[in-house]
Simulated scan of single mutants.
Amino acid sequence: MSFTKDYLQKILPAFGSRPAHPVLRFNPSVESARAEPETIKVEVFDYNIKTIEHHEYNSVYACEKFKNNDRITWINIDGLRKSDVEVICKGYDVHPLLVEDILSVGQRAKMDELDNILFCLMNMLYYNAASDSIETEQVSIVLGKDFVLSFQEEANRDVFNPVREKLKINTSKLRIAGADYLCYSLIDIIVDNYYTVLELLGEHIETLEEEIIRRGDTRSLALINGLRKEMIILKRNVGPVREVINGFLRSDSDLLNERTTKYFKDVYDHIVQANDLVETYRDMMMSMQDLYLNKVNLRLNEVMKVMAIVTCLMAPATVIGGIFGMNFESIPYLHNKYGFFAAVALMLFIPVVMIYAFKKRGWFKR
């Protein structure tokens, strides 16, 4: 079994394919284990209309002082360690069920409301141009009274830099509005980044389509199958976000200002369009597979056509050679000194006439 696995791993890259994404083998009934990082990064933005403080820590214990300080506080934690998540969630009265969702692996995008806390879990998407694959990072956002907690798996990348830059501007909407608007901004930037990934994936699909039309070999089929796997990942991560945004729109929580609802409606429109794009790309992938199969069939038909023509052209020579090769004593021109040349001439003349007839019928047209 191990030999077969190793062999497949060696030959798959040669055709441009790769094993299925691990998310396809995720089993939610089995408790998942995440490798805990050695260090974490805690970033805090504590602000109001007039002032803002930006701090970075390597421990969650330093965040307790920002609770109930009459300011809006955003605490972003990069790296999930069970003990640290439990400590900060306990300090901000986050329900243990939500803690379990934060620490989960491969969780479906969702939105919950427990004990005057709004919680949403989504995936940030990145496009890896080197491997032509979509990479995901789970992010959990907790909205409470005057605070937002965000939990990320990795510390080396996220999509929140535009939000950080806007917070530093005194006149920005983020500084004036409440924590609900900050929560909206984080969700909005995640959804907007989906379009960046979709655009890059769309360019790759167009390039692959041109390659199939121009060449269409076995490598193209492997690339099609690889892109189909990525479309499954994309569909699984983008589709449920529509329900997440819808949950905020239906919520009657006091944490959400009525003026903020129109912004969530805008995000809802964006995620609906993103879902439509995903469906369009899936249809394109199916069309590309049909295009590849049609090209293969066309190539096979061309080969069969050439073989049929060659067979037809050789048939007269075979028949004439067979007739004059029969073992009879009396055959016309058998002992004639010009018999051989006459037979060869006839073998060449008939195929020339056949080629002319085939051409008149348009059999050589592509």
Rank of each mutant, 00 (worst) to 15 (best):
S2T: 06
K5F: 07
L8D: 03
K10H: 09
A20N: 09
V23W: 05
V23R: 08
P28T: 04
V30D: 15
E36H: 04
V44C: 03
K67G: 03
N69W: 07
I72H: 01
T73R: 02
S83L: 15
V85Q: 00
V87H: 05
H95V: 03
P96W: 04
E100N: 12
D101N: 06
S104P: 06
V105I: 15
V105F: 09
Q107G: 10
A109P: 14
K110P: 13
K110T: 11
K110F: 10
D112C: 09
I117R: 07
I117Q: 05
L118E: 04
M122I: 13
Q138M: 03
D146I: 00
F147N: 00
L149R: 00
A155I: 02
N161C: 11
V163S: 09
G178R: 15
L186C: 06
I189E: 11
I189Y: 11
I190V: 13
V191I: 09
D192I: 05
D192V: 08
Y194I: 02
T196R: 06
L198D: 01
E203Q: 11
L208W: 07
L208S: 10
E209I: 05
I212D: 02
R214L: 11
R215S: 15
L221V: 06
G226E: 14
G247Q: 06
G247M: 11
L249M: 15
R250F: 08
S253R: 10
L256R: 03
E258S: 12
Q289K: 09
R299V: 01
L300G: 06
L300D: 03
N301L: 06
A308R: 13
V319M: 07
V319R: 05
F324K: 14
F324S: 09
F324A: 10
Y333R: 08
A343T: 01
A343H: 00
F349M: 14
I350P: 03
M354P: 05
M354K: 07
Y356G: 11
G362P: 03
K365E: 11
